[in-house]
Design a protein around this nucleic acid. Sequence first.
DNA 1: ACCATAAATGACACCCTGTGCCAATGCAAT
DNA 2: ATTGCATTGGCACAGGGTGTCATTTATGGT
Lengths: 222, 222
Amino acid sequence: MTGLDATPVPDRPLGRPRATTHDELEAVGMDLFRRMGYENVSVQQISDAAGVSRRTFFRYFPTKSDLPWGDFGLEVDRLRVTLSAVPDHVPLMAALRRAVVEFNRVPAEAVDQHRARLGLILTEPELIARSLLKFQLWREVIAEFAARRLGMPTSAFLPELVGEIALSAAVAAYRQWIPAPTSDLPTLIDTAFAAILDLDGLEHGTAAVLAQRLARPDGDPA
Amino acid sequence: MTGLDATPVPDRPLGRPRATTHDELEAVGMDLFRRMGYENVSVQQISDAAGVSRRTFFRYFPTKSDLPWGDFGLEVDRLRVTLSAVPDHVPLMAALRRAVVEFNRVPAEAVDQHRARLGLILTEPELIARSLLKFQLWREVIAEFAARRLGMPTSAFLPELVGEIALSAAVAAYRQWIPAPTSDLPTLIDTAFAAILDLDGLEHGTAAVLAQRLARPDGDPA
DNA sequence: ACCATAAATGACACCCTGTGCCAATGCAAT
DNA sequence: ATTGCATTGGCACAGGGTGTCATTTATGGT
């Protein structure tokens, strides 16, 4: 050290260097899950494949079922930021619709990986169970926004209901998207919101219109 | 037995008599949960308290987290029967609204117990997780009905979405009802449906009307 | 009375997840 | 070299859940 340049936070401040990363464990784990099925892979196997002890795995992920979720907290923050930037003149449901649609727009090259992730999450029973816990954060962000708009506390009935509804739209769209490689997730979600905003119309022709919209190749002339 | 009456299926056809029942295990378990907290009670403790081996517990319930659900499959069947009896001229959402409201009407003397159950289910993380699996059956029944009405397969987008929406209404209502001993569950659920059917109106006065409706003591002059 | 049959129980062994605890490791600064 | 420190790995342990098998407790026939 020549002692001139100040490196107050030199990326590894102190102590023994890490033996792995969240990303590596996640990659190794997802690979094993895809090849052998989620419940046929033990944490021991993942740890071995990553060259790390079982104990260390649990220092990076609180649970085996957290693996497929990546850093979901960050994603949720992204949604919160998006919503906080919405101008006041945009109606509540329109704002949510747009925000949720954009939240689920993934780069073309990441689509397959994302589908695999969600497919696992909404297929494997243990992960389905876990998803409700994870999505609580997401719902909370929606509820906060609705609460601001309606002038109520976040925990009030209507904000929480709006959070549930938005999540319903997303999850229903996920379920359709996962097994259909040609479908477009943002379009599905937008359609879900359209349906929700005209539930009473479904029996009177709206359903047919929406179904036709989904049948089109990709463009979304709404 | 004087030996005259024919009993072709005498309730216990053969073999060693059962040492316990679902109801007994459930009662014993729920009592322990209430006094010590769900996660502080082991299956061993429940089994001991019921005078049965741990192994036998798992012959009656597949999981510790299934205990608070009673015979949910039967409840779901009840909902299915209700819906199948709805005349064709009743609009889709009106039928669901009514059916879900009635499904959640419990006799006055069972209210406290039911609240305790749901409170546990929607409070304890492990049980929250389990709830999604359980409610899948419930959602499926709603989706079946919507599918019939819309002339689509049950697994189509819109029927599944309607199932999600109905569940949202119920769950949001549960969450408000649990910590509020004076609130009325059917009224909350009915209000949730009212809100869902007029989401765009929430910002323009509907929210206030609904909130006021809930503030009233009990009667439901809709 | 006796014996076959059948269903449920209990005991045991086992694997897995998740956690607390502590000594060993590897790197940086002194 | 020594010290400081975060991370690792090993170990023991509680608890959930499952497969297996001998044992128990009834019924029904002879």
